[in-house]
Nucleic acid binder design. Structure first.
Lengths: 187, 187
DNA sequence: AGCATTGTTTGACAAAAGTCAAATAATGAA
DNA sequence: TTCATTATTTGACTTTTGTCAAACAATGCT
């Protein structure tokens, strides 16, 4: 999910509103392997990726590590259900490499809805973007072969290919790691 | 996607706001096979399903009819990209059986954002719900076998099973029609 | 009712993808 | 650097899923 560029201009934020927005951000650094959110904990913030890569995943019945999403610079990191309903998260979100985020706390987020009317629209648009991406992902899983999914992923996400363990990409694409290894050999 | 019940109470709408909201709805009847939205046209409204079933689909390169979603009573029908950006739709949305909708036009929708502050939150929450559903769908396609996906679909959507052609369910689940037929025999 | 159209099932087969286990390769910590 | 751990590849094999074509069933017009 890529955050729309030039938010202030686009949404006609006043200088005061821009100032309040910028004040709300907290910069955070994550070492590879550090968690943004852990299973069982309640999400307390959203994050905008400035640098690095994050990965969200959960453990299924068989305790397999299932990757549900990658987050690259420009992405919004949010665990919607946990954050909105303040319930324990079912997913983990972890930095894959050393990374930097701008975060906004849940509390501050709620204030911004009141303070800056346009904030609602910004968040709605971000949500719509996520929706489009998610629909796209579902459609790919629905209609494309393992090889096609991998090839498309490679062209769309060269940075992820370079930095993320193959097994996590395999899991994200719904492909067995051995099968993906063979797909790579053939290409 | 199920629309949250009791919207007025939940979002603290005033009587006046409830009145404006209700005034915005246009009731529409669709015969089986009638289109809510056609590929190439620009989406002009959103719809809440009151009765019946709708189906969204597109044609891929091979001109296969790919079902992307079903809409049952309580669902919000929206073609996000086409409506938000007022660009031609890539998908079709059609009534599977005789159906009834409450619709709100794109123009009125925009007015409501101004007239009723809570409308922003309502729409954001609806979007979040859609997001959750879509993530769930992607995860199923990613991790479950064809048989598991079909079984889960049957328990979650008995009404759809009863009323929609098997080939559309197969397409939605990403399963070949012949394969799904065999899955059914075995169960 | 009769017929054409569309949807579903089935068989025989092919291709895609997964499983298990072992061999390599890469990585990271002492 | 060395060793243990983790990641990736590979082989041999099984299972799942898809393909094609034909048969059968259901549906809807006229």
């Amino acid at each position: 999910m890529q955050v729309k560029q030039n938010i202030p201009e686009y949404y006609g934020l006043s200088e005061e509103e821009v100032r309040m927005t910028l004040e709300s951000y907290v910069e955070e650094h994550y070492k590879a392997g550090e968690y943004f959110l852990q299973e069982g904990k309640i999400a307390g913030k959203i994050g905008f990726v400035k640098k690095g890569i994050f990965r969200s995943f959960f453990y299924n019945d068989n305790t397999d590590d299932i990757t549900t999403q990658f987050y690259v610079p420009g992405s919004l990191i949010i665990s919607i259900e946990s954050l909105n309903n303040q319930v324990p998260s079912k997913e983990n979100i972890v930095a894959v490499v050393d990374s930097e985020l701008s975060t906004v706390s849940y509390e501050r987020q709620k204030q911004l809805y009141e303070l800056i009317p346009a904030w609602n629209r910004i968040c709605k648009d971000l949500g719509d973007e996520m929706n489009k991406d998610m629909l796209n992902r579902a459609t790919q899983l629905q209609t494309m072969s393992a090889t096609e999914r991998y090839q498309d992923f490679c062209t769309q996400n060269p940075e992820i290919i370079k930095n993320v363990a193959l097994k996590h990409i395999a899991s994200y694409l719904g492909i067995d790691i051995a099968t993906l290894s063979r797909i790579r050999r053939k290409i």
